[in-house]
Design a protein around this nucleic acid. Structure first.
Length: 473
RNA sequence: GGCCCGUUCGUCUAGUGGCCUAGGACACCACCCUCUCAAGGUGGCGGCACGGGUUCGAAUCCCGUACGGGCUGCCA
């Protein structure tokens, strides 16, 4: 059989898919696809407390969102770790028969008591030579041999562990269920996994797993331990204190491509990014050039600010139609879709996220008949503070009201505004301020007189301007 | 405490002994453009944790120190 790369992504179902998990999945995916290999999704459901069918669907959905599709020919699974219970049992028995493991009847409390009494940490090998057989309330422990265990890691190089620092760890619990290190190693062996790519937090138990691989008669896989993602306090991202849910970012309006691109730049730079002056690269380019050997060894801070910058770039790169389609998901049902599509272009380059702030930027264009825009009082006060402001504004309003509705076009309105401001000697940058606040309700927003738009932002049926002109405020 | 990993601008990184007067990106600041805000353009601020070695030469190699992190469970 030809050498093919088989990697696996092995999340445990927890009800929330972590951005760190997404990054790890992406690393595995890139390695598998670029080599024409296989990516196996294995659900680690050994701990029965965490096992809900819907959570597995969530994982598959999350992966699909970031481009790891279960329909892809390189994708295999999902397979349940629990389905391999017999294999775990068989492996455990074999280890016991071969003398690589032994039974121990000490309870966790007793183990701890002995450790405290002797002033050492962990299990002291109490049952190593007691010749205990299997039985109720007995755990199976691995007999760690003397010597050194050398882990060859693609990202960290050679890591040595003195076996004397590894206690005889538990393989099978007293209730007969396999523990993570055993189940994980056995599954990897059974699945023919060639590369184990996972987070750095697994590095400490790698020698244990490598010992299991060897005891079971197999060459260990290629290991790759990628540094963890950290928060501003430089602690590993945790769902308790940090915003780590991939789905939450998705709902907040981040684009999958932007998220994927950003995640991949954590600990790795696409070759050519420096010359190109940008880290924005497509997945095909990432897939073709990603190398585990090039991944940084130090933890990376998950910086939402930079994610925002990436997202904004991806949004600006969208086709106008795609932008309208996606942005339309955020606007109220009663808004006219065609009208929204017309003004969407001015929104696109001002959008960093598809969130609920989108409608607030253009809501004055969708007021129900006869209602006024809500004016930000502070903005109005500021815009009309200058001595010339009120008179100039009144003149502009008067000029606008003298216009027949048929002439309410961008160019005409702008020209009228400019004509009035010229008489005051005020530049448009300042002169437009009161007009803007009166018609849009705010001091910032899209250009008032934007020629590229088929419609003016100021329309005759907006009554606010009149209201101000008559001194109602 | 023990074992292991790590340390280049605020952040993510390029750098594998001379190309480094340490480069890029994000953020920040200034200016330009400009009807506000954005976008875009130009420029600026800012870093090799520290101390010893090795070498003609060290961000790059070695040792030590400091600091940070991960693991230390019959969780995964």
């Amino acid at each position: 059989m030809a050498e093919t790369i088989r990697v696996r992504f092995a999340p445990s179902p927890t009800g929330m898919f972590h951005v760190g998990g997404a990054r790890s999945a992406l690393h595995n995916w890139a390695v598998a696809r670029q080599a024409g290999g296989t990516f196996v999704l294995r659900i680690e459901d050994t701990d029965e407390a965490r096992n809900r069918p819907e959570w597995i669907e969530d994982i598959i959905d999350a992966l699909a969102w970031i481009g790891i599709s279960a329909d892809d020919p390189h994708f295999e699974g999902p397979v349940m770790q629990s389905a391999a219970a017999a294999a775990h049992r068989t492996a455990a028995d074999r280890l016991y028969q071969q003398g690589n493991a032994y039974y121990c009847d000490l309870t966790p409390d007793e183990v701890q008591a002995r450790a405290e009494a002797s002033g050492t940490a962990g299990y002291d090998g109490y049952s190593r030579d007691r010749g205990l057989g299997p039985g109720a309330e007995r755990v199976l422990r691995f007999r760690v041999p003397d010597g050194m265990t050398v882990v060859e890691d693609l990202v960290r190089g050679r890591v040595e562990f003195d076996n004397s620092t590894l206690e005889d760890f538990v393989l099978v619990r007293s209730d007969g269920s396999p523990v993570f290190v055993l189940a994980n190693a056995v599954d990897d062996i059974e699945m023919g996994i060639t590369h184990v790519i996972r987070g750095e937090e697994h590095l400490p138990n790698t020698p244990k797993q490598q010992l299991i691989w060897s005891a079971l008669g197999h060459q260990p896989p290629v290991w790759a331990h990628v540094p963890v993602l950290v928060n501003e306090q430089r602690k590993k991202l945790s769902k308790r204190r940090d915003k780590v849910s991939l789905d939450q970012y998705r709902q907040e309006g981040y684009l999958a491509d932007a998220m994927v691109n950003y995640l991949m730049t954590l600990g790795w730079t696409p070759p050519g990014a420096e010359e190109a002056g940008t880290e924005i690269v497509s997945w095909p380019e990432i897939e073709a050039s990603f190398r585990l050997e090039d991944v940084n060894r130090s933890p990376a801070f998950f910086d939402v600010k930079k994610l925002d910058a990436f997202n904004g770039e991806y949004i600006r790169a969208m086709s106008p139609d795609d932008f309208v389609e996606r942005a339309a998901e955020e606007i109220p049902d009663e808004w006219d879709r065609d009208r929204f599509a017309q003004i969407a272009p001015v929104l696109q380059e001002r959008t960093v996220r598809f969130d609920d702030e989108i409608p607030g930027k253009v809501d004055f264009l969708f007021l129900p008949e006869g209602t006024d825009v809500k004016i930000d009082d502070a903005a109005w006060v500021k815009a009309t503070k200058a001595e010339w402001a009120r008179p100039l504004f009144d003149d502009v309003i008067a000029a606008y009201e003298a216009l027949p509705p048929a002439r309410w076009h961008t160019d005409v309105l702008k020209a009228e505004c400019e004509r009035v401001m010229a008489t005051y000697g005020i530049k448009l940058g300042k002169a437009q301020a009161p007009v803007r606040v009166a018609t849009t309700g705010r001091s910032v927003g899209p250009p008032l007189f934007e020629r590229s738009l088929p419609t003016s932002l100021i329309s005759p049926n907006q009554t606010s301007a009149t209201r101000f002109a008559t001194g109602a405020v």
